[in-house]
Design a protein around this nucleic acid. Structure first.
Lengths: 196, 196
DNA sequence: GTTAGCATGTAAGGAGTTACATGATTTT
DNA sequence: AAAATCATGTAACTCCTTACATGCTAAC
């Protein structure tokens, strides 16, 4: 099936992989992690958590000993099924991985990916942007009418070009890394941050 | 009311303002004009045209003399009500104008806007991005964990900074222009391009 | 004559927002 | 004691995409 919109679900699983969290905190972290243009709303997060509960990817752990705060909260933790799903999805380097909505999230979890997967995603992303660039460049020549339109097109093209250069640097770095160390780069798991 | 999603409608009206067009051609031009990340689909354009017909903003002009091609097409032209609506919306320099989805479109039609409106939209857009930047910058300090996450944040911040610089240049240019010529900058209307 | 591109649509469904609703806890 | 922020949710609605359906016309 490979639901197109598993972005949110995957990001949640990725965060819960590090430490259990409750909804409110999850939302804050998601907004920091992925530079979403609009902030993620509760109306979108909470239903997603319910869906994930039903799917068996996460478990509800109603607060036992909340530590500092005596405020009751619903804490979620990732289940084995969730871990399995996350790993499977994160391994997939298909077109979905380099689409606009997914790419940032995939990149954010690159530490949990094999080097080849990273490469294929970065290269896929780059050629996607390259296509867009080609279209934009030919379009520019055609109608040199309004000066604001022209300026907008110029700036858009420059932005995408910059993005492409960034990807090229990353690809080169990845290739260099691959040469020296063919293994997966495993970051040491940081100690679960205490959510206050 | 100020429907949030009038973006598409406004863009269509803006294009029809220059010359009557049929749906297929409209879609192509919209995709060029606004650098939408995904191409606009027919499933979104055609229903929008129907809505606009019902609203009385456009008229259907089933092809009379198609010129070069003898292919029958449904050509739309803007109505007085549509012109009125477009002018009213394009004059509004409220928050909606500098949101992500709207800003590019508004900018593309800047030639049909007063200098003060342009200024307010550019400045609104800039402070919106500035806020985003502040949030991102403070976020960055907190968790210097994963190197890919760090790189993503660095790059995002740099992109927004670049955007802010661009807006600043535009604002300065606009201010200089305002000093010399307080009137609206009217581009000569380019001759309606013959759609083949 | 067949393929590629032109041209117009509809139906079902996904993903998320806004607005509403409620209440606890912490800070001032 | 009030205000801010934490915390969790639901319902209605919007906008768009995908996939389907259909047929014309130009070029090879």
């Amino acid at each position: 099936m490979t639901r197109k919109g598993a972005t949110l679900e995957l990001a949640v699983l990725g965060l819960l992989h590090e430490s259990p969290l409750h909804g409110y905190e999850l939302r804050k972290r998601l907004n920091l992690l992925l530079g979403w243009t609009r902030l993620l709303s509760y109306g979108s997060l909470y239903p997603a958590l319910k869906r994930m509960l039903r799917a068996g990817w996460i478990n509800e752990v109603t607060t036992v000993s909340p530590g500092v705060s005596r405020r009751q909260r619903i804490v979620y933790q990732i289940s084995p099924a969730g871990t399995e799903f996350f790993s499977r999805e994160i391994t997939d380097a298909g077109p979905a991985a380099w689409e606009d909505e997914n790419f940032n999230m995939r990149f954010a979890f690159f530490s949990r990916t094999e080097s080849d997967v990273r490469m294929r995603i970065l290269e896929g992303r780059r050629s996607r942007l390259q296509e867009r660039l080609d279209r934009a460049r030919t379009a520019r020549g055609e109608r040199a009418g309004d000066r604001y339109v022209t300026e907008l097109q110029r700036h858009s093209i420059e932005s995408v070009e910059r993005e492409v250069r960034w990807l090229t640097e990353l690809i080169d770095a990845e290739r260099a890394l691959k040469g020296t160390n063919p293994q997966v780069v495993r970051e040491p798991i940081t100690a679960p941050t205490e959510f206050s």
